[in-house]
């Protein structure tokens, strides 16, 4: 049975109201409807009567785990599969206290990529969208069309192995079946290209980088108090976005710092205002960590992070 998004929204509002009324938490972090169709925005609820602002839909794409660090109060958070995996890693890294957190899990059917939709609409303005039975019906000026939902989902959702929250206190809605295994065919495909081609592809992508660091800010795991890119003594990397090599170097180090921690939620990729393909590198790291260490980030609280555990290889050590 397909549980309607409206039902989940209602259950979410009720649960938030109850938690705030009973003073179990001081803050509920979730989503509210944005001003444009298919858009949702993170929202912070502190009063029980504000709980009706909460909403759930196919545009709740932000990884809310990014807001959980360094908050003294008890709070509740709405978590999809990917958010919950980031939360698991944050707990393991002592960034979030489990006892201060109420996780309201929501099984996720994937989120709609508005860029994909906008390409299909050839840039025409979207005014209304309705999702029913796996079809997205869109209305706008001079447009009236219908697309299969799967065609519009984010790439990160199409390979998602954990649509259901791995850690939660309450679960709203029914569990969603996971998609077929992720073969990382995209990573293998990229690596099979000649080195010069790979270099020029990445340089071309990163030539658009404006160093706004939205990728870093959107990532729940990018939480260094001082990022190496912001250091000026020593200055590890040029701060000019015109220096394409430095842009690539920044991404390479970012990816390296996320080794064994990245849950491939795609938040960095979605946050990029320049539409740079960041997931080629992040996914490469996710796959390498799986291959080398047999570790998938954010699955269990007990499994030790790969870089903190003794390493076993064919040679006996690394």
């Amino acid at each position: 049975m397909l549980i309607k998004m409206q039902d989940i929204t209602k259950a979410m509002q009720e649960k938030a109201r109850e938690l705030l009324q009973n003073k179990e938490v001081e803050l509920v972090i979730g989503f509210s409807k944005g001003s444009l169709p298919l858009r949702y925005t993170p929202c912070f609820i502190r009063q029980p009567e504000e709980a009706e602002k909460l909403a759930w839909g196919y545009g709740c794409e932000n990884n809310l785990a990014v807001y959980l660090r360094k908050r003294p109060e008890k709070m509740a958070v709405i978590a999809k599969g990917c958010d919950s995996r980031s939360i698991v890693e944050l707990i393991k890294e002592n960034q979030v206290k489990r006892e201060n957190l109420v996780i309201i899990g929501v099984p996720c059917r994937g989120m709609i990529d508005r860029q994909k939709l906008s390409r299909l609409l050839a840039g025409k303005e979207l005014r209304e969208a309705e999702i029913k039975d796996g079809l997205v019906a869109v209305q706008g000026k001079d447009i009236s069309a219908s697309f299969p939902l799967d065609q519009l989902l984010y790439d990160s959702c199409l390979t998602c192995q954990h649509p259901n929250p791995v850690l939660y206190d309450y679960l709203l809605g029914e569990q969603v079946p996971a998609r077929g295994s992720d073969t990382f065919a995209d990573v293998a495909g990229f690596e099979s290209r000649p080195p010069a081609e790979r270099r020029s592809y990445l340089m071309k992508e990163l030539s658009r980088c404006i160093r706004c660091y939205a990728c870093r800010q959107a990532c729940p795991m990018c939480f260094c108090e001082e990022c190496f890119a912001d250091c000026s003594m020593p200055q590890w990397v040029s701060k000019s976005s015109l220096d394409v090599q430095a842009n690539l170097f920044f991404q390479a180090v970012r990816v390296l710092h996320l080794a064994g921690r990245c849950v491939d939620c795609g938040a960095c990729d979605r946050a990029c205002p320049m539409g740079i393909d960041l997931r080629t590198l992040t996914r490469k790291m996710v796959r390498d960590i799986q291959e080398l260490f047999g570790y998938t980030a954010g699955i269990s609280l007990d499994e030790k992070p790969p870089l903190a555990a003794p390493i076993k290889t064919a040679a006996g050590h690394v």
Binding site: F190, E191, P195, L202, L248, L256, L281, D288, L292
Partner: peptide, 15 residues
């Protein structure tokens, strides 16, 4: 080390 070498290779830098 292994992770970094693999990353460099993807960037087109010999390991």
């Amino acid at each position: 080390m292994k992770v970094t070498q693999r990353l460099l290779e993807t960037l087109g830098i010999e390991r």
